[in-house]
Simulated scan of single mutants.
Amino acid sequence: MANRRASITDLAKALNLSTSTISRALADHNDVSEATKKRVRELAEELSYQPNQLAAALRRGRSNTLGVLVPHITGNFFPQVVNGIALEASKAGFNVMICQSNEDVKQERKNIDLLMNSQVEGILVSVSNTTQDFGHFDAVRSQDVPLVFFDRIVEGFRGNNVSAVMLDDYQGAYQLVSHLIEQGCTRIAHFTGPLHINIHKNRHQGYRDALTAHGLEIDEDLISVMELNQKTGTAAMKRMLKQSNVPDAVFASNDLAAVGAMQAAKAQGLRVPQDMAIAGFSNEVFTSLTEPTITTVDQGCETMGISAVRLLQKMLNGNPDRQAQPRNVVLRPKLLVRESSLRKPE
């Protein structure tokens, strides 16, 4: 027993008692004598016995566990969302099982299987960049396990037990690009992630519509679709600077690509924002520490996590038969204007 966790069966065998007697003794039931309770507790302490809370919960018909699946737990956004989820789940008496797909749809499928096999009461998920076939979510939907997508959602995937929490990415991008135009920028490049992902598609559409609304032409040569990170942001900026008519601003769909673009621009001797305005999206911690500080859009990370758990709770408690009540929650973005885009005094 030194190499494994002591079980209630081990206690029963050692004391020549039934497992039900051991269970009642540990629960301090009145139908078990004090002498027997004392023997059980002493052995339990000697063997460092810990009750299997998950098994006990399942016997009661509830696991009290929520499954969370995110693309990664690096950076600022997803850790803060998960923190919001954990805080709100704890208040509601839930444990949290966290998995990450590492932006790999195969791992995402495995994680969904793991969570379903663990009999979680609900799943909160943000899909990977490589997810284009959503069949692995059918098992969740068909078994009526409440499913809440957040941030990166599956558009068109509907069901009585499917809901979503998202940011108004379109509006965030529209406001940011409008700000750049108001600062006098007329050739605004856009670095975007894969457009089959809703957040990038909506930010890209906000970019295009803001240009059109302000009477500016859309130049497809100023649009780069890529996996967004610091390295690709730098590479894209270098390509843009080789064009005959270089951009005077960059709107990147995440902050890592924005800082990469800023580094490339400064390496070429350009001043930010005087020669090249830079803006990102997500409000990563480093955006307030760079020189200059980077204009971005705050996504309300913890609020998103808290909202996802509250929505899942409503789905769990909606009806006596536990049929979920689908609902979408859309959060408002907040434009944070900083030095990297300010060409005119506020």
Score class of each variant (00 low, 15 high):
residue 115 L to S: 06
residue 116 M to P: 01
residue 117 N to F: 01
residue 118 S to D: 06
residue 121 E to P: 05
residue 122 G to W: 03
residue 123 I to W: 12
residue 123 I to K: 04
residue 123 I to S: 14
residue 124 L to K: 01
residue 127 V to Y: 08
residue 128 S to E: 11
residue 129 N to I: 11
residue 131 T to C: 06
residue 131 T to E: 06
residue 132 Q to G: 14
residue 132 Q to P: 04
residue 133 D to F: 10
residue 134 F to S: 00
residue 134 F to M: 08
residue 143 Q to L: 14
residue 144 D to K: 14
residue 145 V to Y: 11
residue 145 V to K: 05
residue 146 P to E: 11
residue 146 P to H: 12
residue 147 L to V: 12
residue 147 L to T: 05
residue 149 F to D: 00
residue 149 F to L: 07
residue 151 D to E: 12
residue 152 R to G: 08
residue 152 R to V: 13
residue 152 R to D: 09
residue 152 R to P: 09
residue 153 I to N: 02
residue 153 I to W: 01
residue 156 G to D: 14
residue 157 F to I: 11
residue 158 R to I: 15
residue 160 N to H: 14
residue 160 N to A: 15
residue 161 N to V: 10
residue 162 V to F: 02
residue 163 S to K: 00
residue 163 S to Y: 05
residue 165 V to G: 01
residue 165 V to R: 00
residue 166 M to H: 13
residue 168 D to N: 15
residue 168 D to C: 04
residue 170 Y to F: 12
residue 171 Q to P: 06
residue 172 G to I: 02
residue 173 A to F: 10
residue 173 A to N: 15
residue 174 Y to E: 08
residue 175 Q to M: 14
residue 175 Q to H: 12
residue 175 Q to L: 14
residue 175 Q to N: 11
residue 176 L to T: 13
residue 176 L to P: 05
residue 179 H to G: 06
residue 179 H to W: 02
residue 180 L to M: 09
residue 180 L to E: 03
residue 181 I to H: 06
residue 182 E to Q: 15
residue 182 E to G: 15
residue 184 G to M: 06
residue 184 G to L: 09
residue 184 G to Y: 04
residue 185 C to W: 07
residue 185 C to I: 07
residue 187 R to A: 02
residue 187 R to P: 01
residue 189 A to T: 03
residue 189 A to C: 03
residue 190 H to E: 05
residue 190 H to D: 10
residue 191 F to A: 03
residue 192 T to R: 12
residue 193 G to I: 12
residue 194 P to M: 09
residue 195 L to C: 14
